[in-house]
């Protein structure tokens, strides 16, 4: 994929051929200019991204035995140890369920929210604040609040469920339910944030189309769906990448609420890495698991960027 094709992806970028024919003078200013512009970022990326990756990669190939003995080169043994660890397999499976189970509802809700509050008035102003508020709360604090919300019998959820004659499960302590409760927090926390992207994305859709479709009832909704989907494809691809990266790189709520329990029911890959590195002194295994998760994330992101490119063309 080329950068030119990525530029095409943006419908607002204007006629794609234009930049090629009339180039601003400064583009010819000197070969070094782009690199000079990137240099400040690259300095920090080298220090805090590439250097650590190299260090992690070196760690992944070595073993520093906690039980004693010299550290040594072990080739890919750490990778096979991770893949052969039932706890990792469980965490990876959980992570898959967690990723799909949070990203899909979060995006649907974000779109729904965006449709509802896309225009500015007093009512939507309140709604926007309410829906966006969870994004402002630190995940550590949100998790502590949800500890209370999910308390058996006494918590917010059970308190109000009881009023309508229902009885909730042990939200965080039942191994069949806990992961879904954790997912609920993630959806609550992120939907309002992605809503902002969809409010922006909806600008690509002619307002009349939305209004007409809505007034038209069920058929209209159906039509809206078919108009919206392709028009919002670039936004969706963008949000999917951000959302996936987000759900795979934040586990504060797991740390605060369940520490991966009961019986690993809520363990996720990132927390597995955390445990191996910082609780079990298995730095090699942690490094190997880190590299694998980076590889998976990178593959997903590249895939999404490609999808974004295709989606963009569909509109342009």
């Amino acid at each position: 994929m080329t950068m030119a094709s990525l530029q095409h992806a943006d419908p607002a970028a204007g006629a794609p051929t234009r930049g090629a024919t009339v180039r601003p003078a400064f583009v010819r200013r000197g070969w070094w200019l782009p690199y000079a512009l990137l240099a400040p970022s690259i300095v920090f990326l080298v220090l805090f991204t590439y250097l650590p990756i190299v260090r992690v990669a070196v760690d992944a190939l070595r073993e520093v035995p906690h039980a004693g003995g010299p550290s040594r080169f072990v080739g890919l043994a750490n990778f096979s140890a991770v893949l052969g660890d039932p706890a990792f397999i469980k965490a990876a499976t959980n992570n898959l369920i967690y990723a799909v189970g949070t990203v899909v509802p979060t995006i649907l809700l974000a779109l729904l929210f965006a449709l509802a509050v896309r225009r500015s008035n007093a009512f939507t102003a309140v709604l926007r604040v309410v829906l966006f508020f969870p994004s402002l709360v630190p995940l550590v604090a949100a998790a502590s609040l949800f500890f209370f919300i999910f308390l058996p019998h006494l918590g917010l959820l059970d308190h109000y469920l009881r009023m309508v004659g229902l009885r909730g499960p042990n939200w965080l302590g039942d191994s069949d339910v806990a992961l879904w409760s954790i997912m609920g927090i993630t959806v609550w926390k992120n939907a309002g944030y992605y809503m902002l992207f969809y409010i922006a994305g909806l600008q690509n859709v002619p307002r009349d189309t939305i209004e007409a479709a809505m007034i038209d009832g069920a058929n209209g909704l159906q039509r809206l769906w078919y108009v919206l989907l392709p028009a919002l494809a670039p936004t969706t691809a963008f949000v999917v990448v951000i959302a996936l990266v987000n759900v795979l790189t934040s586990v504060d709520h797991v740390v605060v609420l369940t520490r991966g329990g009961p019986t690993n029911a809520t363990n996720l890959v990132l927390y597995y890495i955390f445990q191996e590195a910082h609780e079990n002194f298995n730095y090699g295994k942690a490094a190997a698991a880190t590299l694998m998760s980076v590889a998976v994330l990178l593959a997903i992101s590249l895939g999404s960027v490609r999808a974004m490119e295709r989606g963009g063309r569909g509109v342009a």
């Binding site: 500890f147 209370f148 308390l151 058996p152 019998h153 006494l154 499960p169 042990n170 965080l172 302590g173 039942d174 191994s175 609420l257 369940t258 329990g261 009961p262």
Partner: peptide, 18 residues
Amino acid sequence: PPGVVEAGGVSTAFFAGN
């Protein structure tokens, strides 16, 4: 109660008479 209740939940249940 079946399942796991964290310490914070147990102390809260004790305070609330549950």
